[in-house]
Design a protein around this nucleic acid. Structure first.
Lengths: 202, 202
DNA sequence: CGGGATTTGTATCGAACGTTATAGAATGGG
DNA sequence: CCCATTCTATAACGTTCGATACAAATCCCG
């Protein structure tokens, strides 16, 4: 698999270049990031980009996958590792507050932001990210529903309503981070959001 | 002022064309809306657009002002007409839930969305909208602070924290509307958000 | 019914977009 | 050491971007 094929070897680090591209898409979104912006950030010329990644769309796809592995995974961990939905979502929000304001990368969430504006040519990219957002909301709903099923939450719990609420909180936190909110700001948002939890321990 | 000047009269309704432009910017954002998209929607040719509105940037400015008058005003009304900050913000969120999902225009909020993605050339437009968002957050803070001053809210109330929380709620509701949430969905988000209110009537 | 003023449609401007043809440079295999 | 193979750099492709030059058309005023 890692056997060397004949021919001139690649002169740049593919993984490092991908990370640079991710940062550009993260900061400026899909459509507003041009090939020349990408090549400048990645330190390569267009033919190298197209040879290594296919085209802009495919490169963005790899960036999204990388983002999901590196940053989206915290959602999965929080939702699966905590004993209750309340603790899971509380942890998720606290960790997102830290990640959205981590100065080592752009603020906010790539999945939420990158196709917020798009022309008619990028409808498919926008739809892909939208499907990912809906999937995350569904995973939140599933985690809450699990607690309803085990009796931890009352069976009159508004499961889809809570899922929509926390999805909105997450997206609002992302936007606030991009508008300059600090980690402490977002942690307070997260704490206040948890007051909406049904039968919260007063 | 409305005296007719000599010369060929304009063959299109400037106000109607402006409304069409607003809808385009609202749906696709500032940078993703091209001049050809605008002229097609407005039913005019580029020279007419430039003669009547200046350039794309100035046209967008007029659309933003129109949006503020037509849709942003509900925030001002809610924050000034209600006797308490809690009722003011509750009403604001309910009315935004209706406006963000009103089928007679694009979903969500223009000010929040239109420059979510932007290249380096549109930094000034993005900054203008960001300043408007920060101003709205500050108006929310001011309304809450007024209730603290009159003793309606305890003086340990986290005024900027609450303002950031509700700003995030509004932005999350806008995003949810664009992802397909219904008015009833957003009204539930609004109701849940009000549970974060300090000393909420249980 | 002429003449200055303004709008209109057509056609186009230079610049930037995503993408690629082409030719030279650098590798491993024979 | 030569060749097939792969990558790199330059330069350019056709298209679309925001914005206009131009001339025909339409108005008010005299």
């Amino acid at each position: 698999m890692t056997t060397r094929t004949p021919g001139r070897p690649r002169a740049f680090d593919r993984d490092a270049a991908l990370e640079k591209a991710l940062v550009e898409f993260w900061r400026h979104g899909y459509e507003a990031t041009s090939i020349s912006t990408l090549t400048a950030a990645m330190g390569i010329r267009p033919p190298s980009l197209y040879a290594a990644f296919g085209d802009k769309r495919a490169l963005f796809g790899e960036c999204v996958r990388r983002y999901q592995e590196r940053h989206g995974a915290l959602v999965t961990r929080a939702l699966t590792e905590e004993p209750t939905a309340e603790r899971a979502i509380g942890r998720m929000l606290r960790e997102l507050a830290a990640d959205y304001t981590d100065p080592s990368h752009p603020p906010g969430c790539l999945i939420i932001t990158a196709t917020a504006n798009h022309g008619p040519d990028c409808a498919d990219v926008a739809e892909e990210l939208r499907a990912m957002r809906l999937a995350t909301k569904q995973r939140i709903a599933d985690r809450i529903a699990a607690d309803v099923r085990t009796g931890l939450l009352p069976d009159w719990t508004d499961v889809p309503g809570l899922a929509t609420f926390f999805a909105a909180i997450i997206q609002g936190m992302s936007r606030q981070a991009q508008d300059g909110a600090t980690r402490a700001d977002l942690e307070r948002v997260a704490a206040m959001a948890m007051h909406a939890w049904p039968h919260s321990p007063a």
